[in-house]
């Protein structure tokens, strides 16, 4: 039943105006015309996202400290972590490639994890942190450029390719990257910015329905 106390929203993919409906926990609402997901009702979204973000931070540090994997050929050994690999490609005069890899696999994931922890920690203590609006806006725009899961597939493809000519020594970071991939997906699946905007509404006491 449409409830006239609930706000009107517009679909972000087809602009259709429709009235919100109340959702049970875990459900999501879709646009009645184009089927895009309008919003979700995620139980304990803030707490879960914070837990996943903290775990992701630990995994991120491990993944970037230890070697991903090493190769061995006739006694010659070579092992590298991600930043060393980027540095090596930079020195081979492939600077644009090195930058692209650094941004998509190190800088953006690090930014996302740090900002998420800052935001959710502050909300845990019942206040909107300074710059929250800007952070949410930036998190939304950098999202497509964080590519840890694609990098993980790249690691696996490289492993198979190299196993043809070299002896492979798996490093700690290969497992850390695997777990980081899962945790970043968990953060994305549990984070519900809508909860934060509802908090903002409550704090400023502004009327939702227009």
């Amino acid at each position: 039943m449409p409830d006239t106390h609930l706000p009107i929203i517009a679909c972000h993919e087809c602009d259709l105006l429709q009235r919100e409906i109340l959702l049970r926990k875990g459900d999501f609402a879709t646009c009645s015309r184009c089927g895009s997901v309008l919003y979700r009702n995620l139980p304990e979204s803030l707490d879960r996202t914070l837990a996943f973000s903290l775990a992701a931070a630990v995994m991120f540090l491990l993944a970037n400290t230890f070697p991903i994997f090493g190769i061995e050929l006739q006694g010659n050994r070579m092992a590298m972590n991600l930043v060393e690999a980027v540095h090596s490609v930079w020195n081979q005069e492939m600077k644009l490639i090195a930058l692209l890899v650094l941004i998509t696999t190190v800088l953006i994931p690090a930014f996302e994890i740090i900002m998420m922890i800052y935001l959710l920690m502050s909300l845990k203590f019942q206040r909107m942190p300074p710059g929250a609006n800007l952070i949410l806006r930036m998190l939304q725009s950098v999202k497509p450029w964080g590519m840890v899961e694609i990098f993980m597939l790249g690691v696996l493809v490289s492993l198979v390719k190299l196993s043809h000519d070299f002896i492979i020594i798996p490093g700690v970071a290969i497992w850390s990257f695997g777990l980081l991939t899962v945790l970043i997906a968990a953060v994305a699946a549990s984070f519900n910015p809508r909860d934060i905007w509802i908090n903002v509404e409550r704090e400023t006491g502004r009327e939702v329905s227009g």
Binding site: G70, I71, M78, A85, S88, V89, I150, G154, V157, S158
Partner: peptide, 18 residues
Amino acid sequence: MLDIFVVTLLAALVQMQS
């Protein structure tokens, strides 16, 4: 972007091998 990551990893790891 997959191939970019593969090329980076291979070029970085194998360059030092004599």
